[in-house]
Design a protein around this nucleic acid. Sequence first.
DNA 1: TTAAAGTACTTTGTGTTACAAAGTAAATGT
DNA 2: ACATTTACTTTGTAACACAAAGTACTTTAA
Lengths: 98, 98
Amino acid sequence: MKGFDKLNKAFDSRVRLGVMSILVVNDWVKYGDLKERLSLTDGNLASHIASLEKLSYLEVRKEFVGKRPQTSYKISKTGKRAFEQHLNGLEELLKGKQ
Amino acid sequence: MKGFDKLNKAFDSRVRLGVMSILVVNDWVKYGDLKERLSLTDGNLASHIASLEKLSYLEVRKEFVGKRPQTSYKISKTGKRAFEQHLNGLEELLKGKQ
DNA sequence: TTAAAGTACTTTGTGTTACAAAGTAAATGT
DNA sequence: ACATTTACTTTGTAACACAAAGTACTTTAA
């Protein structure tokens, strides 16, 4: 099946798809913003982010703003490449008979 | 997140995405063809198909060809609608900042 | 006539994942 | 002192993925 083997297991999940879609067009998105935009609980978002981090698909920045901790995420080069591959696969899969 | 809530849990899996992508452009595809085109084991394909059937996303036809059993699948109206919704969601998710 | 192989499953077993809820830690606001 | 905020981690449960083996029936081959 054309395109099928380009699909990346990492992007099966709606949550990780959502995270990547946000990060592919926005740099340095705050943890809290991801949580809110995707309507997720902390534990759920954190675990999905952890799995993307483990694949080096994300860059992480931890800083203090005011005196509050703030974590932000950016898609990495590897992550961007992987995501685009996946989207290519999807497109091929969908536009082609045969 | 725009589009995110249109994503259908049923299509998270690469396998079910593959099945639906094939069926959305081909009517009455044989079980064996699905298996081969997606390089799946019997058990794996059968269980994914069962879950799509349970959602009434597929129509099933069982017949004998020669004297061999042959099962074929076609996407149902519901299935088509659901799949298109999902693809819409994906598109929205990906093309839009904000 | 025993044996192998095809078709479409189901069952079994194991490991992975998803998720909510609760807990943690360090600081701030009241 | 106490609640709140931020960003997690831990815990527990349920769902899911998958390969491999088993089932049932038939056909073809030796």
